[in-house]
């Protein structure tokens, strides 16, 4: 093979590509929601995609991490299916932060250090002039891929619901 073909894993079964298929569907769903992808970090364990919500007065960016937990082998796939966690992190950015606000944010950070979010909880975090809200859910990959408009609709519904919840928590931190 003379070209970039050797960059790809060969001989893999479709079962092993389910997390990539999920990422593809996610990027398509977000594009339909007017949030193009602007950053990718992919490795064998998890895949992270950063999106830019266009025309959103509150959110600066949305980061979605897909972490496949089961279904890599034929036995796992047959017994427990293909489970993955999807972590959604929404960011509010304030372009000019008052020093007093930063001090207040760090106090909240200290309170957050000892908080262990359970699956489905929303965790708030502050970094300089950004405030982040994060939520993690577990899904069955097969519900969200390869079923045409039905799976796209389900994916769009899931993302819209989570981002809506995170946005609600973050709205109070956005300064005009």
């Amino acid at each position: 093979m003379l070209s970039f073909l050797n960059q790809f894993k060969h001989g893999q079964e479709m079962r092993e590509s389910k997390d990539e298929i999920l990422v593809g569907e996610l990027v398509r769903a977000m594009a339909r929601l007017k949030s193009p992808a602007i950053g990718f970090v992919a490795n064998s364990g998890a895949q992270m995609v950063r999106f830019k919500p266009l025309g959103d007065p509150i959110l600066h960016s949305i980061v979605i991490i897909v972490d496949r937990k089961t279904g890599g082998s034929m036995i796992q796939q047959a017994v427990i299916g293909s489970k993955a966690t999807i972590q959604v992190q929404a960011e509010v950015k304030n372009y000019l932060s008052d020093p007093d606000d930063l001090v207040a944010m760090y106090r909240t950070d200290l309170a957050n250090i000892f908080k262990m979010p359970m699956l489905g909880d929303v965790k708030l975090d502050h970094q300089m002039n950004s405030v982040f809200a994060t939520k993690r859910v577990m899904i069955d990959i097969d519900d969200y891929i390869l079923k045409g408009e039905e799976s796209i609709g389900r994916m769009t519904q899931l993302i819209t619901a989570i981002v809506g919840e995170l946005k609600q928590k973050l709205t109070q931190y956005k300064k005009s």
């Binding site: 479709m14 590509s17 990539e20 990422v23 593809g24 398509r28 992808a37 999106f51």
Partner: peptide
């Protein structure tokens, strides 16, 4: 991202990202 969204929209599935 745009190539992924456009190609998936045309009926293809993303099977590798590197």
């Amino acid at each position: 991202g745009s190539v992924i969204a456009s190609t998936v929209e045309q009926g293809y599935s993303l099977i590798d990202l590197n």
